[in-house]
Design a binder for these strands. Structure first.
Lengths: 204, 204
DNA sequence: TGACAATGAATGAACGTTCATTCATTGTCG
DNA sequence: CGACAATGAATGAACGTTCATTCATTGTCA
């Protein structure tokens, strides 16, 4: 039988809160244990060391991204796929937690080749998925532009990353709903720009 | 007569290298002093503490951004302004150094309100400048889209930030020239999307 | 009782910061 | 000029603290 609580998950939940609050390296193992309500030593029963905790969180992030991609894939229209991807990090309990974590993850990737490999892998998989999504979409039959699906995907991901980066500048007073509305607006703006048909554009 | 070397600058040059290599908080004062070829104690003659070093670097970044904005403002066409802004961080000796620094700066902003204020300030000033640039540009008289200058500026900055973030994932083997070419391509792609006139678009 | 979960005091390395000390340079006086 | 005093840039060992990690001990069930 499984234990009443999944310790690994419990520790990771505590860790992401701490990491978002203070960053990877300013978070001490004591911070994590306190947040999780357990002792320091216990963390070492489930993770070899601090790096392993960071690594496990990155893996978690990878599977979360995959889940979002799957949801986006099943959306009826391309616009809705876009909206799902842009607001994915706003649906969770606290958006700025995830944003701060991801920015930190990229910062870590800048100097830790192992993390960089993982993030590149996540990004590549997600981008392939979106490229595919775009290529198959009916919106692409009569584009007003001459951009290839892959180029569009790159642009979309750049905007998404850029918006995520902007998110960490917002004071905490901004609610999750406000954040979501803001991201949605950008997604729709981008969509109009990318996929509005010529006739629609002419009378806009 | 001035001393042969400007110590403050010397320290800041060493610091940005260390920060890009290891991040703000994983860089020790000893790292900086070693990189600068001076003793630890001497740093404290020129900076009150480690935070002051980080602060001074952020200030430096602010004035660099202002300089880039000024250059962009004086470019003959809007496309060239865009190109200047997208490649600004590639012109320096080592692009990924600056990229890593900026990503770290945002990560720091996520949890240090003082840094967040500064970054928000930098961003707002730069975006106002670009909004103005767009509003005055001849390219805006017959837009194919219905986006306001400010919305365009937001989009452009999001893409620029997103590309910068992507930069830190690239292995060091990529040369500055390759990086520059990549950024230029994205800038031009974005420009085509935003400012290509209807007639041009129709025959593209 | 035995097996394992959980604790938290202990350890030692590394950190930011301080400060007594050194010494090349500059200023001063005879 | 030469001898000596004064300066302050520069040093790096030392301090107090924090941290990741370990492990002897205790608690908890079957």
């Amino acid at each position: 039988m499984e234990p009443a609580v999944d310790r690994r998950t419990q520790i990771l939940e505590a860790a992401i809160l701490c990491f978002a609050r203070k960053g990877f390296h300013e978070t001490s193992m004591h911070d994590i244990s306190a947040e999780a309500g357990i002792s320091v030593g216990l963390i070492y029963r489930y993770f070899e060391n601090k790096e392993a905790v960071i690594g496990a969180m990155a893996d978690r992030h990878k599977s979360e991204i995959h889940a979002v991609l799957e949801r986006a894939r099943q959306a009826p229209t391309l616009l809705e796929s876009l909206e799902i991807m842009f607001t994915a990090h706003c649906c969770e309990n606290s958006p700025q937690v995830l944003s701060a974590f991801v920015v930190d993850l990229y910062a870590e990737a800048a100097r830790n080749p192992q993390v960089a490999d993982l993030v590149r892998d996540i990004l590549q998989t997600a981008m392939n998925g979106v490229t595919d999504l775009i290529a198959r979409s009916p919106e692409m039959v009569n584009p007003t532009h001459d951009l290839k699906p892959q180029e569009l995907a790159e642009l979309i991901f750049a905007v998404a990353r850029g918006m995520l980066m902007r998110d960490v500048l917002q004071p905490q007073e901004m609610t999750a709903a406000e954040r979501r509305a803001r991201q949605l607006e950008v997604a729709r703006r981008l969509w109009r720009l990318l996929f509005k048909t010529e006739s629609e554009a002419a009378y806009a």
